[in-house]
Design a protein around this nucleic acid. Structure first.
Lengths: 125, 125
DNA sequence: CAGCATCCATTCGGATACTG
DNA sequence: CAGTATCCGAATGGATGCTG
């Protein structure tokens, strides 16, 4: 569980923009899936969540804490270290999350088709 | 499938505010579940979605159409009539949606507890 | 490293008024 | 009935700069 997270875990080509299902805010679902691999530090999380700013990551993490899905642990020391881990409640969400991801994968093409076939308000092409 | 929707289908005490899982925008999940019972007219949908304004319902419906989850049919006549129905793709979402709702029901108490136990920033009491 | 404070643009949800 | 148009406030998401 200490192996590094895949930086391409959430490819920009596969954003939740298109995803009609979301968990919490824009990042919550991704964070939970990251933590599904084991506890992670603040900066570790920033890798797969490419481009997320510290403030926004903090916000999302706080919201998850508040909902009891994530636990925050501070390890004091020469270099401060903070770890985030899923609580049992948070882990219980991994199953439903998988269902959603499976749905998305299975119907990705249809989603894409529908978007392309739609009137495309605004954008040319 | 023509029986009226339960106005209390989405009780205000059970809002998606607390729900960490969402489908599309604030209303999309509820709309899809409404349409899971069969096609519905614009004004029929406004009943269980208590308080939704026409504009917001239209927006949500348009977004669902664009994603190919909902189909819109106009029946011209003395009194114009518009019906919304789930597409096959939309129906395929009902299963995952059930999973999410089941999760929420099962862990509702924990969610509530976590919220109450949290520092409660801002609000008194 | 792991934040917090501040400021800012965009989006979201909604109120109100009007149309065919 | 089924919307459209316009205006508005609040919440989201983010950039930048600073702190222990």
């Amino acid at each position: 569980m200490t192996e590094p997270l895949d930086p391409e875990m959430f490819d920009p080509l596969c954003p939740s923009d298109l995803m009609p299902i979301r968990v919490g805010d824009k990042w919550a679902g991704m964070i939970i899936r990251c933590l599904g691999h084991g506890p992670r530090r603040f900066s570790e999380l920033r890798v797969p969540l490419r481009g997320i700013t510290a403030k926004v990551l903090t916000q999302s993490l706080r919201a998850l804490e508040r909902d009891g899905l994530v636990a925050r642990t501070v390890y004091a020391g020469p270099a401060q270290r903070v770890e985030y881990a899923l609580t049992p409640l948070g882990r219980s969400l991994l199953g439903p999350l998988d269902v959603m991801c499976a749905w998305a994968e299975e119907h990705w093409d249809e989603l894409l088709d529908a978007r392309e076939a739609s009137p495309a308000p605004g954008r040319a092409g």
